[in-house]
Design a protein around this nucleic acid. Structure first.
Lengths: 354, 354
DNA sequence: TTGAAAGCGGTACCAG
DNA sequence: CTGGTACCGCTTTCAA
């Protein structure tokens, strides 16, 4: 590839002049400008962004760290982030933690040494132990050349005064879903939750409880059972609930994967959905509209989550680092009613992309 | 962040010495080595890979260009590529074309100027026009500092003597699927194909035809109908076939999305699957095991496709560029028999990840 | 308006 | 075994 030297030689001008033309500085005579431009075209020159990066300490690369690209939830998040990134001129570096904190920490350090401009992070650091606290402190102090490398977390906000986040009002979403079931007349609602002590899981449980309280309906705490995200765990938990003859008429699941598992369990045990047991999922990933019966779900704006994170990242990168004010962007959810709670619900395949 | 100068100062040695210690050159006294190492630890120094990249003309970044991350097919491909990339020390840059050739071309140029070490490309350049030929020539000649930037295409091989590829034996896969249906006794098989003139689509049609010939079963060419990848198109085509009372007893679809659409059409029109119409998909994305009836599908090794591309990329980057020999890696498919062709087929949710 | 030169953070060569 | 120095490609300051 031609470099700026070649262009300068070809045009018979100095490197500085070429640089001026490229960066649109006014102070170049039309004569030279023309010569430089045609040299650029002839040689197909394009500035090397590695060198630019080194010079400017700015790479125009944003890293996005998620647990796994095959979690379709993140797929939409990435899509949103990428869309905005492209428009703003950033490239996206992607990496997966597979829910391993060690890996996550190593990735962070690697991206710092790559001088990414910012990091969008779906963290696996849920605990409250010393290691996690130390890690968060580290995240707060990432920098290149004295300038902070901003981190924006997805899904939940860290205990930090610096780290921005794009989150969902989980409590309200769970409240809405539960209220909906109660309004349908369901009185014995089970909840397949996230693993114990998961922050987001706890918020969902809080919403679940609040709805019951407000409706004056008691619930059985033993019907809040932890799953592990997977379809199979939803299947197992639902199957146990039914086989052990627990008296339930609805299941609210903390994600769609587990809800699909629950539907499969009902299908196998010939429990009619929604007649005997209504099922509500969470996230509204595309699979929700594909299963039979189609799955009623809390619709999380996944695409928007990625897009918002990237927009915010750009904002932060523009602003004066010294006066950074942490911002937590809370997105709200919608509710998609489908056949798993309402036999006659209709939905369209028309705009389904996957 | 500390740079190598800081480390040198802190350790009281020259920059060269620090560099030697880092890169494990033997010629350093234990004394100095120790001092440098503790300086590195104290300062938390890690080499800036932008500077390294500039110096070495090697960024350890591989770009992967796909149509869209939300196509779950690519999701698995990325996962495979990323897994291998991490092990080999590369970072993955990701970009989407949304099937626009203009965008694809621009992305290529952008990545060249970013000095990526290689590009893995799921191209949208299917046509045979002058523009495409010119584009392929450009792909063959990407370089940084005189060294070629290798391109490896996914899914199909370009008309090129240089560009490696990881592909599937589409003809055989379609042949297998069709033979399977014929063996089941189906005699009136429809095929919902990819858009007209799509190379891969044509190979599938060839396999479909060969199976019929070998079995001595005639087929109705009007039952090969192009879809457009989407669930909705599969739904529409299947619905038309049934409503217009075409006499068919099986549908082989060029992807799973369209197959799911076909299943939905049958469901709506109360045509029993597989009793009256058997349905076979293609790709075996996870949705195939979620729909009801679950979908029999040609299982494409998506993960392996990404992994193989990345391994090959690494090979090429190691070898002497002058003696590069183009290699086309053909992966073979498996066949997943499920309920859409065999009522009693069983499958497990246990290892399903999405 | 133009060119020369310094410097971004490393690596590697050469001299001592 | 160690340090000085040139250079990777670009931007920017300074001097002319």
């Amino acid at each position: 590839m031609a470099d700026i030297k070649d262009v300068a030689r070809q045009a018979g001008v100095s490197i500085s002049t070429v640089s001026r033309v490229i960066n649109g500085s006014k102070a170049v005579s039309d004569e030279l400008k023309m010569r430089v431009e045609s040299a650029i075209n002839e040689l197909g020159y394009r500035a090397n962004s590695v060198a630019q990066g080194l010079k400017a300490s700015k790479t125009n690369k944003i890293a996005i760290i998620i647990t796994s690209v095959s979690r379709t939830f993140f797929t939409s998040v990435i899509e949103g982030a990428n869309e905005v990134a492209e428009r703003l001129g950033y490239s996206l570096l992607i990496a997966e933690t597979h829910d391993k904190l060690d890996r996550e920490i190593e990735l962070i350090e690697s991206f710092v040494s790559q001088w990414v401009d910012g990091i969008i992070l779906a963290s696996s650091a849920y605990a409250h132990d010393a290691r996690t606290l130390q890690y968060i402190q580290r995240l707060e102090s990432l920098e290149k050349k004295g300038r902070r490398i901003p981190v924006i977390t997805l899904e939940y906000a860290m205990d930090s005064r610096y780290i921005d986040a794009v989150v969902i009002d989980y409590e309200k979403a769970a409240y809405d879903a539960t209220s909906y079931l109660l309004k349908l007349g369901r009185r014995k609602i089970a909840h397949i939750s996230l693993p114990k002590n998961h922050r987001i899981g706890r918020m969902r449980i809080a919403g679940f409880e609040r709805a019951h309280e407000e409706f004056g309906v008691p619930y059985d705490p033993s019907h809040i059972i932890a799953g592990d995200y997977t379809t199979y765990s939803g299947y197992q938990v639902a199957r146990n609930l039914i086989e052990e003859k627990h008296d339930i008429d609805a299941i609210f699941c903390a994600n769609d994967q587990m809800a699909v598992g629950a539907i499969k369990a009902c299908e196998e045990l010939e429990v009619p959905v929604p007649e005997q047991i209504a099922i509500v999922g969470n996230d509204d990933i595309f699979a929700a509209s594909i299963v039979s019966p189609s799955l009623t779900s809390i619709s999380v704006p996944k695409y928007e989550m990625g897009a918002a994170a990237m927009r915010r990242m750009h904002e932060i990168l523009q602003e004066d680092a010294a006066k950074h004010l942490r911002q937590i962007i809370t997105l709200s959810t919608a509710f998609e009613e489908r056949e798993s709670t309402l036999k006659t619900a209709k939905h369209s395949l028309k705009y389904l992309e996957w």
